[in-house]
């Protein structure tokens, strides 16, 4: 559990810093490195670590920007994606981030398995 929390903390922190300057998929690499360095107990937990970390990072940041903006843009963008509400747009953002983040940590985990 401690490993789980530390991993999440590292991915969100480093991911936050690097994504401000590099393309969005940098977060996958960050997750992979963290997944490699800090071994989860199994593949499922590994995936979950990356998923939760990036889902939190993207979701919270998107939610913050959305509140700043008074939900103006997310409402319009939600309409573009089949009448989704602002909240659903934040969740969708979180989900997309989570899915790719999970794969990041999983690759790191599986990579470490190769050499141990």
């Amino acid at each position: 559990m401690k490993k789980f929390l530390i991993s999440i903390l590292l991915i969100t922190l480093i991911g936050f810093l690097l994504q401000s300057y590099f393309p969005w998929w940098t977060v996958v690499i960050v997750a992979a490195i963290v997944g490699f360095m800090i071994q989860s107990t199994n593949g499922f937990w590994s995936y979950l670590t990356g998923f939760v970390a990036v889902a939190l990072l993207w979701g919270i940041y998107a939610g913050y920007l959305d509140i700043q903006n008074g939900h103006l843009l997310s409402t319009k963008m939600g309409n573009l994606f089949g009448a989704l509400s602002s909240g659903s747009m934040v969740l969708l953002t979180s989900l997309i981030g989570g899915i790719v983040g999970g794969f990041g940590t999983l690759i790191g985990y599986l990579g470490k398995q190769l050499i141990t």
Binding site: W24, L65, L73, L92, I96
Partner: peptide, 19 residues
């Protein structure tokens, strides 16, 4: 491109101007 568009660091969220 959904990843490019949805990620809050460079996607559409960045275009929401503060009120």
């Amino acid at each position: 491109p959904l990843g490019k568009l949805f990620n809050p660091f460079s996607g559409f969220w960045q275009n929401g101007e503060s009120t």
